[in-house]
Deep mutational scan, measured.
Amino acid sequence: EYSEEELKTHISKGTLGKFTVPMLKEACRAYGLKSGLKKQELLEALTKHFQD
């Protein structure tokens, strides 16, 4: 599980793409985000969540 700060850091540095799909799905579930099946959809959901 990833902390909010850790995820925000990866988003701001542009390194969230280094996460694997299972890692991204886990992060989306942890924050109650609707997650797609594609890596890009997962990245967009997390990025949008933490930028709002």
Rank of each mutant, 00 (worst) to 15 (best):
M23N: 01
K25D: 13
H49Q: 06
L24G: 00
S3I: 07
K48V: 10
E44N: 12
A27K: 06
E5I: 11
K39C: 03
G14R: 06
G32F: 03
F19K: 02
S35T: 15
G17K: 08
E26T: 03
A27Q: 03
A45P: 02
K38Y: 06
E5C: 07
Y2K: 08
I11P: 00
F19Y: 15
H10A: 10
K18I: 07
E5V: 10
A27S: 03
I11C: 08
S3H: 08
T15K: 02
L37S: 11
T15G: 04
E1R: 05
F19M: 11
L16C: 00
L7C: 00
C28M: 06
G36D: 15
Y31K: 04
Y31H: 15
G32Y: 04
A45F: 02
K38C: 12
H49Y: 11
K34A: 11
Q51Y: 06
R29Y: 07
K39Q: 08
E5M: 09
G32A: 05
V21P: 02
H49V: 03
S35R: 06
L24S: 00
S35G: 14
H49S: 04
Q51G: 13
Y2M: 10
G14S: 07
K8S: 09
E6A: 14
L24F: 01
E5G: 09
L37E: 15
L43P: 02
A30L: 14
K48S: 11
K39F: 01
G14N: 10
T20K: 03
K48F: 06
T20I: 00
D52R: 11
L24V: 00
K25A: 11
L46E: 01
L43Q: 15
A30Y: 15
E4C: 10
K38R: 11
G17A: 12
K18V: 07
Y31C: 13
K34R: 11
V21K: 04
S3D: 12
S12I: 08
G14C: 03
G17Y: 11
M23C: 06
V21Q: 13
H10K: 02
K8Q: 12
A27F: 15
F19R: 01
T15Q: 09
K13D: 06
T9M: 12
Y2G: 04
P22D: 15
L24D: 02
G14M: 00
Y31F: 13
M23L: 06
S35H: 08
T47F: 05
Y31D: 02
D52G: 15
A27I: 15
K18T: 15
A27W: 09
E6V: 14
E44T: 10
K39R: 10
T47K: 06
T47Y: 12
